[in-house]
Amino acid sequence: MSENIVEKEIEVKDMSFFYGEKEALKNVTLNVEKNKITSLIGPSGCGKTTLLRCFNRMHDLYKGNRYTGEIIFKNQNILDKNIDITKLRTDIGMVFQKPTPFPMSIFDNVAYGLRLKGIKNKTELHNRVEHVLKKSALWNEVADRLSSSAMGLSGGQQQRLCLARTLAPEPDVVLFDEPTSALDPISTKKIEELMQELRGSITMLIVTHNMQQAARISDRTAFMYMGELVEEDATDIMFTYPKKQMTEEYITGKFG
């Protein structure tokens, strides 16, 4: 079976993370499989967001944060101080919990990352914006108002716009931090469907507190507890025969 020839996109090796003195991640080791969806689950405060934000070095924004260990991506340790962070963030995009439209037109929002990449040609920009908006199932809703402000969209549309904006520069990996927790069920479904369509061409890591969602959409699931990565496996195994007792207790709702 081809299942055995898994390709690794990201390798987390014995990584710890500190907010100042507080150790929020303890010796995490994890392989993220290429072009699959991996869910990060675990009780609130266990470090899911913290782990996710290591992959695009978002923690660098704040003083006193510190990493040890390695995260290997494209044969490089991305925790290395000398790495090109701008390039890393073009390769690894992120969608946040609350929609974060920029104060500009719908078109300019999606074109933002493309322009950053140096694409200036109007036709090319337009084609790529159209393409990615179609891919994000937003084109029909916004085609006639590309030049109006993105702030006028509904919450669900804004979140799909943010996904389109993230996808536009064609990243290899997209990180999602509870992307649907602020959305209604219909918008949630749309985002989940989009993720399903992207599966196979993009590596996705999603933090979710919703176990049904993890079971529904992901290929792999990782369970975290108090800053440690307890267990990671194929989603169906994790939700039926987890190896660790703690995972089972969490999944069956004994704590959380």
Partner: peptide, 22 residues
Amino acid sequence: PWQLREAALALGTPMYKVIKDI
């Protein structure tokens, strides 16, 4: 909100451009 700045940074935007554009 800081998250707006983070969203721009997460696209690979340099800080000065985040301040200027966003």
